[in-house]
Amino acid sequence: MKKTTTSFYDILGISSATFCLVHCLIFPVLTILPLGLIHNPIIDLIFASFGLFAIIKIMKKSSLLVSSILVVSMGLIWISILSEIIFKIHLDLIYLGGIGMIIGHLLNYKLHKKENH
């Protein structure tokens, strides 16, 4: 049961980080088109909340390397989102954080898969 739970949180984290990264890369292009779209950092906050939930669950059972990658990546994402909400400053740290989250979750998924087979 623990293997399935850990895999679920890794898949949730990978999915959330991937959707967030795609959103962050594609949305600026969509705002150029005359569709009436505006950027809302609350959407980024929702993605970050899903990711935070996943890494809190994963950190209890993961290695120091994986935990460090996930914590640093999540920190970069939250700094970027909060700077946009509070100071109206867009930082590119969110891209690095998204890539780090994907890497951290993939590493954790592969490590747990190797341990359980």
Rank of each mutant, 00 (worst) to 15 (best):
K3C: 03
K3P: 03
T5Y: 10
T5S: 10
T6D: 09
D10Q: 12
L12E: 04
L12N: 02
S16L: 02
A17H: 00
C20K: 08
V22L: 13
L25H: 12
I26S: 10
F27K: 11
V29Q: 05
L33N: 00
G36T: 02
N40I: 14
I43W: 09
I43L: 13
D44A: 12
D44L: 14
L45V: 08
A48E: 05
A48M: 07
A48V: 06
A48C: 08
F50N: 03
G51R: 00
G51T: 07
I55C: 09
K57E: 15
I58W: 03
M59C: 14
K60F: 15
S63D: 13
L64G: 11
V66R: 01
V66M: 01
S68V: 02
S68E: 06
V72C: 06
M74P: 00
G75V: 03
I77P: 00
I77F: 04
W78Y: 11
I81K: 11
L82H: 15
I85K: 12
K88Q: 14
I89S: 10
H90K: 08
L91T: 14
L91D: 08
D92V: 09
D92R: 13
L93E: 06
L93I: 06
I94M: 07
I94L: 10
I94H: 04
I94V: 15
Y95N: 14
Y95F: 15
L96T: 07
G97Y: 02
M101Q: 10
I103M: 03
L106K: 02
L107W: 07
L107V: 11
Y109H: 08
H112L: 02
K114M: 13
K114E: 14
E115Q: 15
